[in-house]
């Protein structure tokens, strides 16, 4: 895959530091870069066996056993209604919120990067609402725009 390297970029925001920096766990879905606030990520794991939940919406791929705890596997590709073919195996970004374990299924894991609040911007209006409703905003990093996914919004949609 021709995804851009992040290692060089990582330094840039750090040097242009500000006291208000946030760390993000980044990942790729359909070749696009997304990030989640590190504090809401419990762990990142490789692909795990999934038990499907019949009748559940298509973006809920099923349940996974995370060392005796049960997490709900949510495919971001399906949640964003992206139509491109999915890979055979997903990576899990496991988040805990309100006592619920949600594992976001993503294509590939990126680095953890620290970003300054200076580079933040709200989500542009032109972004498709299908994705925009899960986004908190974007960070401008050299060579990339990082879309920030808010887990709370994901859970909100699930609970709808």
């Amino acid at each position: 895959m021709s995804e851009p390297s992040l290692t060089s970029n990582q330094e840039a925001p750090k040097s242009a530091e500000n006291r208000d920096t946030v760390q993000f766990s980044t990942f790729f879905v359909s070749g696009r870069l997304y990030g989640i606030d590190v504090s809401s990520v419990q762990e990142v794991t490789k692909s795990l066996p999934i038990t499907e939940v019949p009748l559940a919406p298509n973006y809920i791929h099923g349940l996974i056993n995370l060392r005796g705890q049960i997490a709900t596997a949510v495919s971001l590709r399906d949640l964003f209604e992206l139509k491109d073919p999915a890979p055979n195996e997903f990576m899990n970004v496991v988040c805990r919120l309100d006592g619920v374990l949600i594992s976001l299924l993503v294509d590939e894991i990126g680095d953890v990067i620290e970003l300054s609040q200076n580079s933040f911007e709200p989500t542009p209006d032109t972004i498709s609402p299908k994705v925009a409703k899960f986004m908190d905003g974007i960070y401008k990093i050299p060579g990339h725009l990082l879309s920030i996914i808010e887990v709370k919004r994901v859970l909100g949609v699930l609970n709808e």
Partner: peptide, 12 residues
């Protein structure tokens, strides 16, 4: 093990 709240609407 309890399921997340949003599974309740599936009823079964």
């Amino acid at each position: 093990k309890p399921l997340a709240k949003f599974f309740r609407k599936l009823m079964i």
